Simulated assay, not measured.
Amino acid sequence: MRRPAYPIAVLVVALATFAACRRDAPAPAETGLATPVVAPVVDTALVRAIREQARDVDVQGRGRVSKLLPDDNDGSRHQRFVLRLDDGGTVLVAHNIDVAPRIAGLAIGDEVEFRGEYVWNAKGGVVHWTHRDPRGAHVGGWLRHAGRAYD
């Protein structure tokens, strides 16, 4: 006795329906079932300041230390280092160590977050005012490294 084709046809239709539903299903991040990938923080003020070769613009961002430089000891002392930004550009950070603590143990490859004032130059620009203003007249900045704030 020959079996009817009905169960096979039902199975084929069920598989086709399942495949179509999976293709149209929302991505895991849309359903809340998975942790979404966090995009890097991009400060549009920083991007715009670099593109427009601006001066004296308050910015915030982060980067990885690509070069450690000697302190600048002319006038107020500044700890200096170069950060490579997520977009591949670089900025020099000039952190006033007469007003705020030095970042101890800073090494190439370390991540540093910053808030300060950007001044464009042909090498990528400088971020300074990465500390509070002792006179209270200027917007305060900060640096964060290894879970510690420096301001």
Results as ranks from 00 to 15, higher is better:
G147P: 04
R102H: 04
R84N: 06
V127Q: 03
A27L: 13
T17A: 08
D151R: 12
A5Q: 11
A94G: 05
P36R: 00
G140N: 07
D133M: 08
R144V: 15
N121E: 08
V126A: 00
H128F: 02
P26G: 13
A94W: 00
V82T: 09
L33V: 12
A94T: 00
W129H: 04
P28D: 12
H95T: 06
H128V: 01
G147W: 02
E113M: 13
G125V: 03
T35L: 06
A19I: 00
Q60Y: 10
G105C: 02
A19Q: 01
E30K: 04
S76I: 06
E113N: 09
D71V: 11
L92W: 03
V42W: 01
G116W: 04
A27E: 15
R62Y: 05
R22I: 01
R102A: 08
G63D: 02
V139I: 06
R77L: 09
L69M: 15
A34S: 10
I108M: 12
A107D: 11
G109S: 13
V91E: 02
W142K: 07
A45M: 04
V59A: 07
D151V: 05
I8A: 15
A54L: 09
V12D: 05
R115L: 14
P7H: 11
P4K: 05
V126P: 02
A20S: 10
A100D: 06
D58S: 06
P101R: 02
E111K: 04
Y118Q: 07
P134V: 14
P40R: 00
G63Y: 04
